[in-house]
Simulated assay, not measured.
Amino acid sequence: MRWRVLGLMTAVWLCVGAAQAADPPPRVITLAPSVTELVYAAGAGADIVGTVLHSDYPPAAREIRRIGDGIQASEESILALRPTLVVAWYPTEATRALDSRLQTLNIPLLYANPGTLDEIPALIRTLGQRLGTQAHADAAAAALQQRIDRLQPAAPPAQTVFLEISTDPLFTLGRDPLINDLLARCGGINPYADSRVAAPQVSVESVLHLDPQVLIMSPYGRETLEARTRWWSEHGLTAARQGRIYAIDPDWLHRPGPRLIDAAEAICRDLQRARASLGASAAP
């Protein structure tokens, strides 16, 4: 009987060893800061072996090896890290070329490019399933979904919102379904939503002509809310003169990951304040 038990135990150990050999731990490459944040949200941040220059959140991501700048990535550096999964933001010429090489090595490339706020928790669940962290990912996704469902839009009608993402030259967000979904949930509408591109350059005159009720700036440079409020007031923008100009952390707004929900909550609050301001200015 003793030898039979030992034989069974040996068989179990051999099976476990074979399973481990056939299913190595994940080794993930992330090709955008937002993707890095999504993988961490899914509970698999420790599995990231390479990422791009500006992946700096959460703080632990700053210690990950860099393999490119987010626009170009070194194919040799990526392959040297022996990835089991590469995750990019959206298809580009560079990622398509990389995908062709990865396919020959049976390394999957996944795109994480949400088109609505609801797709952010869905992506976290997908990453959790792929990386063996489903319980953590499901919990994180459920918490984000609850926050999305609780977003409170300002009272109708929708307010027009100009999103200033660069000052010189002046750029805004246009045909960006994710950001326009965010604005709609907060009771806002983007007057440039029908632009042919996601981030069109616009003129000061066109903004003044549209006269948006709210301006939200996401400064990557040195521009402050006070400085932009003063500048737009001097140029005659009603929203600036009446105090309906707000600032949002650009990393929250421009990274389509978990912190975009932080941006949504902040913008919803801003539009509620703007609605109150509009009501007060219209009162006799």
Rank of each mutant, 00 (worst) to 15 (best):
A193E: 11
R196H: 14
R196K: 14
A198M: 08
Q201H: 08
V202E: 12
V202C: 09
V202A: 08
S203A: 04
S203I: 03
V204Q: 04
V204L: 05
E205L: 02
S206I: 14
V207M: 10
L208C: 10
H209K: 14
H209C: 08
L210R: 11
D211E: 05
D211Y: 07
P212F: 08
Q213F: 03
Q213M: 02
V214M: 13
V214R: 07
S218F: 09
Y220K: 04
Y220A: 06
E223L: 02
E223F: 03
T224V: 08
T224W: 03
T224C: 11
T224Y: 13
E226S: 12
E226R: 07
E226K: 15
A227I: 08
R228S: 10
R230I: 12
W231C: 00
G236F: 03
G236N: 05
A239H: 01
A239P: 04
A240E: 04
A240W: 03
R241S: 07
Q242L: 09
Q242H: 05
Q242D: 03
G243A: 10
G243Y: 11
I245Q: 10
I245T: 08
I245W: 06
Y246K: 11
Y246D: 08
I248H: 05
D249I: 03
P250V: 02
D251P: 01
D251R: 02
D251F: 02
W252E: 14
W252V: 05
W252K: 03
W252S: 06
L253I: 05
L253E: 00
R255M: 01
P256I: 01
G257M: 02
G257D: 02
P258E: 01
P258H: 01
P258M: 00
L260P: 01
L260T: 00
I261P: 06
I261Y: 01
A263G: 10
A263S: 11
A263V: 04
A264P: 13
C268L: 12
D270Q: 11
D270M: 13
L271M: 10
L271P: 00
Q272D: 12
R273P: 03
A274W: 05
A274T: 10
A274L: 09
R275H: 13
R275W: 13
A276W: 00
